[in-house]
Amino acid sequence: MKRLEKDESLCIGCRQCEEACSQAFYKVSDPAKSCIRITDREDGTHAIAVCTQCGKCAEVCNTGVITQDAKGVYRLNKKECAGCLMCVGFCPENVMVQCDDYLEPSKCTACGLCVKACPTGPIRIVEE
C-alpha cells in the first residue's frame, strides 16, 4: 500500500505541505483545502494529520465511488460522486476536504507533492 507516513518530531510548522496540497487541486493557498493538516500544540510542537488510506471513506460511501487503485490508494471518482459528504464526516483523521465551491469533496491520493514541498522531512511516501 502506498501512503503517507509521518514523524511529527521533525515538523517545524512551516505549512509548506498544506500550501502545496491546496494549490494542487484548488489552486489557492488555504489550509482548509489541504488534505494534510498541521496543528500547533501549546508546547511548540506540531501535530500532523494525514490520510492513512484506512478506507473508512470507502466503507461509508453508499455508491462505491471510492475505490482502491493498484497501489492501495483510495481514490474518489468525482464524476460519479453525489456529494453526500459522509466520507468527509467519517474520516478518522479529518483530512478530507469539503468546500462550497465544489459539489464533491477531495481526498489524499498520496501524490507526494506535500513531501516534495516539505523542507525538514517529517512526511514521506511509503509503499508496503
Partner: peptide, 10 residues
C-alpha cells in the same frame, strides 16, 4: 455496509 436508503444517510 453503507445502508442508507437515500444518498447521504449516515
Amino acid at each position: 455496509g453503507a445502508d442508507g436508503c437515500w444518498y447521504g444517510c449516515s
